[in-house]
Design a protein around this nucleic acid. Structure first.
Lengths: 125, 125
DNA sequence: CAGTATCCAGCTGGATACTG
DNA sequence: CAGTATCCAGCTGGATACTG
């Protein structure tokens, strides 16, 4: 699918440029652009990872928010959960195909921000 | 600047994939991926717009949040404010060059979400 | 029109303790 | 290890009234 098609899709769906308050787009957009959602998706774009590793990578995330974020992303079909029946428990998380599509669009954004963030923040006396 | 360079920048800056809790990247990322920040940036990518029009487009936004979001985006150097000395007042907002760079990365993401949101939400019984 | 100022309800999310 | 359960402080952000 080409980018131009995707952008046309935006205009087709919202011809007047208004985003209705309760449209599905806003709901899903809030999930994927949430503070922790972005970081988890970017982390998982490097490959399957365990709960503990995700917790370490998204520095500052609480257990509650990690559980909640993973559940939302799983529910939206971006993330797969693979529990292994061993003791102690081991659970791997990975991106679904849909999750990979999304991450491919998220990565350039996050990279751009990572490259420009210092300059942006330092301008703010 | 190529996308591959940008993604390499991510790895260079965060080689172990950890996003430190208080790094500038996280701060700026929170601004641009905030609930209203995304919508305002996308709306402005269609051209300069007045306060009232932005308020109408980002359906559901309060005056307080519109003012706050615009100030943050202006402070980050993504948005320019052009007040005209007329009565009644007229103020136009537009993207800076930096804002256009960012919007170019945001649009494919928002478009993808707009195209898939219905399917995603409908899967959630 | 394009905001600012104030108030405050309620949700977010952190901290802590606990578990199969 | 990978979570769940509970509590609650404090921030977010909506509503309302007002202004140059």
């Amino acid at each position: 699918m080409e980018v131009s098609n995707q952008v046309n899709g935006l205009r087709t769906r919202y011809p007047d440029g208004v985003f209705p308050a309760k449209c599905p787009s806003r709901v899903v957009l809030d999930h994927v652009t949430s503070k922790w959602g972005v970081l988890i998706l970017v982390a998982l774009s490097e490959g399957p990872q365990r709960w503990g590793e995700l917790r370490r990578r998204a520095e500052g995330i609480s257990e509650k928010m990690l559980a909640q974020t993973l559940k939302t992303l799983e529910r939206d079909g971006f993330v797969d959960r693979h529990p292994e029946p061993v003791i102690p428990p081991r659970v791997d998380y990975s991106l679904t195909e849909r999750g990979h599509e999304l991450a491919a669009l998220l990565l350039p954004l996050v990279s751009w921000v990572a490259e420009h963030a210092e300059e942006i923040v330092s301008d703010e006396h």
